[in-house]
């Protein structure tokens, strides 16, 4: 029985396809989802999400969020998601530097803003980690 994966961000539906299996980074560590998985609702951590489809592995990087598995449908709700090939190291490093610079003046920031910036940094670190490991 096939598995349906759907990744949705506030900006768009990033991914929607039938797949064989998927590995999701959660707060408790990576979990592999195969067809017939028990219903699950879990918190997603920023990191690499690997999709197995027809013997090939596709890599995506996701930000923090939630994932729901029910009836062989995997729905991932995340702040941001990007496909591995589309990661541009320069852009990521630039974004990370900006966020880190902003974080340095931490006292003057609101807690919500700090959280957002830290989210950017975590997402950037995850992207860079995946990109560099592949070389």
């Amino acid at each position: 029985m096939p598995l349906v994966l759907e990744i949705v961000t506030p900006a768009a539906r990033v991914y929607s396809d039938t797949i064989d299996s998927v590995v999701i980074p959660t707060l408790e560590g990576e979990i592999g989802i195969l067809p017939g998985h028990i219903p699950l609702l879990t918190q997603v951590d920023a990191g690499e999400l690997r999709v197995m489809k027809g013997g090939k592995v596709e890599g995506l990087v996701v930000g923090a969020g939630f994932a729901q598995i029910a009836k062989d449908k995997v729905s991932v709700l995340t702040e941001s998601a990007i496909e591995e090939e589309k990661i541009d190291e320069n852009i990521v490093e630039e974004a990370m530097r900006r966020a880190e610079d902003a974080l340095r003046g931490k006292e003057s920031l609101e807690p919500a803003e700090i959280e957002r910036l830290e989210g950017i940094v975590r997402f950037s670190v995850a992207q860079l980690g995946v990109k560099r490991r592949r070389r």
């Binding site: 959660t26 707060l27 408790e28 979990i31 028990i38 219903p39 699950l40 609702l41 879990t42 918190q43 939630f66 029910a70 009836k71 449908k73």
Partner: peptide
Amino acid sequence: PISDDREMLFEPGLRPVLDAL
């Protein structure tokens, strides 16, 4: 809404997921 009557698992736990979501 996907209806699935089986028991659902929550990670790291029901309370933290609720608090976050």
